[in-house]
Computed example of a mutant assay.
Amino acid sequence: MALGALRPSPLVEQAAERLREQIASGHWPVGTKLPGETTLARELGVGRSTVREALRALAGAGLVRARQGAGVFVTADRPVEDWPARLRAAAVADVYEVRVLMEVQAARLAARRRTPEDVTAMRAALDARRATAEAGGAAFVDADIALHAAVVAAAHNPVLTDLFAEFAPALRQGLIDLLDLVDVRAAEAGHGDAAHTALVDAVASGDEDAAEREAREELAVMRGKLARQD
């Protein structure tokens, strides 16, 4: 199957799309070694550098992989699903289950590694949550997520911090929607302030067991509310 010469611009994007089409159509099945850069460049009517960049884009999408000294091989016939998109499509209760697993450990690490600056940031976030509790809605959800983000940041693990940042948008809309169905704050005196204060105090004091316990119990309350909406 001839690839066909490309229009002048943008060549890399066009080359990547043309190669992607060949893979998706089954012309190059999974496991197949792709033609060399010189051959691909000739068929596409572009330079080898353009082909190289296009292959790099396909590798980033999980479609191909270069094996040193052997060439470039097809590893999938469709792009690996984008992780943020996967989270947006997931049920908020499912996302929350993973959040519990992540944040409980983060709270324990935060109690071990927190700095005075972390404690200041957590207490400021706690105050902001209190200030928005009566208003509810998006402002309250944003303040609540910001407080949990401050606890995760205090763990000083960049992977945990990045994971939470990916989770936050998926959680945000789900929690805002939940507020429209049931007042998740009403069942708790102070709109959950006592539980969040206990969490911050445990982290600030360096009590790892208490921080883990408070995080688990506080998150379990919301998880239960989400489960009752299913």
Score class of each variant (00 low, 15 high):
M1L: 10
G4N: 05
R7I: 12
S9L: 09
S9C: 04
P10A: 11
E13V: 13
A16W: 00
E17R: 15
E17G: 08
R18H: 04
E21I: 02
P29G: 11
P29N: 07
E37H: 14
R42V: 14
E43L: 12
E53I: 00
A57T: 08
L58A: 11
A59K: 06
A61M: 12
V64W: 01
G71V: 03
V72K: 02
V72I: 14
F73C: 06
V74C: 08
A76P: 03
P79D: 06
V80H: 13
E81Q: 09
E81T: 13
D82M: 00
W83P: 15
R88Y: 12
A89D: 10
A90N: 02
A93R: 15
D94Q: 12
V98M: 14
V100C: 13
L101E: 06
L101I: 06
E103F: 01
V104K: 12
Q105W: 03
Q105E: 15
R108Y: 03
L109Q: 14
L109I: 02
A110G: 02
A111W: 02
A111R: 00
R112N: 03
R114V: 10
T115V: 07
P116R: 13
E117F: 14
E117K: 11
D118Y: 06
D118N: 09
V119T: 12
V119K: 11
A121T: 03
D127Y: 02
D127N: 07
R129N: 03
T132W: 05
A133Y: 06
A135L: 11
G137H: 15
G137T: 01
A138K: 13
A138F: 04
A139N: 07
F140K: 05
D142C: 09
D144R: 13
L147C: 10
A149P: 00
A149Y: 00
A150P: 00
V152D: 04
A153C: 00
V159Q: 08
T161G: 12
D162H: 14
A165F: 05
A165K: 13
A168Q: 09
L171E: 09
I176E: 14
I176S: 04
L181T: 13
L181V: 14
A186I: 05
A186G: 07
A189W: 12
H191A: 15
H191I: 00
H191S: 15
A194H: 09
D201S: 04
S205Y: 05
G206C: 05
D207M: 07
A211S: 10
A211P: 01
E212M: 07
R213E: 09
R213I: 02
E214G: 00
R216V: 04
R216A: 15
L219E: 02
V221E: 05
M222Y: 12
M222W: 10
R223S: 07
K225V: 02
L226W: 13
L226K: 13
